[in-house]
């Protein structure tokens, strides 16, 4: 596996060689610094920790300052562990978009846009109750019945109801890398990725 931490910049569309207009997402990915290496002997699992996006020294706790100083880097906003990294990386290494190749497929995960408290029609795709007319009154988007009566005399666990929607961790798999611009740390992928512009993303490639 190979990966990077990135930031969603926004969406646009580009034309491919045959003239097709392709929707794409622009992601600023890396440079990521290896700030820690987890080993089987010491931690019980193997992983590397990557850090991305500068933040001010003033906003960093002393403990974290030391952590970054050890890797000889400036304080970063995001720390994320990547397991089963295909190449062996050493402490303080800097990873850039070169870890990916144009044309290959990667997985992108992030936190989806929050939708707030939503009803069952939007949240679970219920059809609502019946018609707007014919005596129907005030329950157009209601969930309807929650179950049977004296047996089981209760509502089953996991019954789909209204509630908080969005802000979930979502992974989109197999997005094609359309273009890499190494000098600006830009990855352009086909299609959309979770979350609003400016949110952090995890880019991974599994072989």
């Amino acid at each position: 596996m190979s990966g990077l931490i990135g930031k969603k910049i926004g969406m646009t569309s580009i034309y491919d060689a045959s003239g097709k207009n392709i929707p794409c997402t622009v992601i600023e990915a890396g440079p990521c610094v290896v700030t820690q290496i987890r080993t089987l002997e010491k931690d019980g699992y193997e992983a590397i920790q990557l850090a991305f996006d500068d933040k001010s020294e003033k906003r960093t706790t002393k403990a974290l300052k030391q952590h970054f100083a050890k890797a000889k880097t400036t304080p970063k906003r995001i720390l994320k562990e990547f397991t089963r990294f295909e190449e062996r990386k050493s402490f303080g290494d800097v990873l850039t978009v070169d870890v990916f190749i144009e044309g290959e497929y990667i997985d992108v995960s992030g936190i989806s846009k929050g939708k707030g408290f939503q009803g069952v029609v939007k949240r679970h795709g219920f059809a609502g109750v019946g018609d707007q007319t014919h005596g129907q009154h005030n329950r157009l988007r209601a969930p309807g019945s929650l179950g049977a009566s004296s047996y089981p005399s209760r509502v089953f666990k996991g019954m789909r109801m209204a509630g908080h929607m969005g802000s979930n961790k979502v992974k989109i798999i197999n997005l094609k890398v359309l273009k890499l611009i190494p000098e600006k740390n830009i990855v352009i992928v086909n299609g959309s990725v979770p979350g609003p512009s400016g949110s952090y993303l995890i880019l991974e490639r599994w072989k």
Partner: peptide
């Protein structure tokens, strides 16, 4: 570069 500058750069380089 802020976000809009990056978007402008991508649009201007990727599309004629």
């Amino acid at each position: 570069m802020n976000r809009s500058e990056v978007m402008h750069f991508v649009k201007s380089t990727m599309t004629q």
